[in-house]
Write a protein that binds this DNA or RNA. Structure first.
Length: 202
DNA sequence: TACCAGGAGAAAA
DNA sequence: TTTTCTCATGGT
């Protein structure tokens, strides 16, 4: 069958070139959540250092982070940059998660309800909320990031100035609502962007 | 030295 | 309402 859906064509091309990416690079859903906040405007390499600090201090648990002071948390996540801001955001998020009864309780929530609740938390914007929904809660929510926008613009599929929600709707309306597909797609876009950057540096 | 890296919110225009 | 600024480290 000939496929005239450019978003599916793009996915197939990326998958053919790079294969499965096995994302998100984290051991637990809670680690995904922490990483989603720490990676805000930051390279993953620096985020890894901060997560290693939390692991080494045996603090990479919801109840542990909720119990830390903001200054203690900031010291642990320092390598990820913006550490004072991120410590505050991560505390906000963990306090809320704990108040709701933890991740297991939230996994029963409706996706739209959970998304809105995350967005209502100070410091959680659309991209961070969608990273959490897709990679920690395995919901079919498409993550739009700078890489996605750049690639689609380069391919002439978008103007480039569309807002976040418009792009998310575009993906979600043209693809089957499968979290495994969205997971792989976003991971492939990031992989492709990194390969391009490496090529540019040669 | 300067700029960028998987944002978000506040302040300014 | 839209644009600009701030947060900050580490790598290139």
């Amino acid at each position: 069958m000939i496929d005239d859906n450019p978003l599916i064509e793009l996915y197939d091309r990326l998958f053919d070139v790079y294969g499965p990416q096995h994302w998100w690079p984290a051991e637990t859903p809670f680690e995904v959540i922490v990483g989603a906040v720490l990676t805000q405007n930051t390279s993953w390499k620096n985020v890894e250092k901060a997560i290693t600090n939390l692991k080494d201090a045996n603090q990479l648990k919801l109840e542990s982070i909720a119990a830390l002071t903001q200054d203690e948390l900031a010291a642990l996540i320092k390598p990820s940059g913006f550490f004072n801001v991120k410590a505050r955001r991560l505390k906000n998020l963990c306090d809320w998660l704990q108040a709701q009864g933890g991740l297991a309780a939230l996994s029963k929530w409706d996706t739209n309800e959970l998304r809105q609740a995350l967005l209502d938390i100070h410091g959680i914007g659309p991209e961070t909320a969608d990273d959490i929904l897709l990679y920690a809660f395995e919901r079919p929510v498409f993550v739009i990031d700078a890489y996605t926008r750049r690639l689609l613009k380069k391919l002439g599929l978008i103007e480039g100035n569309e807002d976040y929600e418009a792009l998310r709707r575009m993906f979600e309306s043209r693809l089957p609502a499968e979290h495994a597909l969205y997971n792989e797609y976003h991971a492939l876009i990031v992989r492709h962007a990194k390969e391009e950057r490496m090529n540019d540096n040669r």
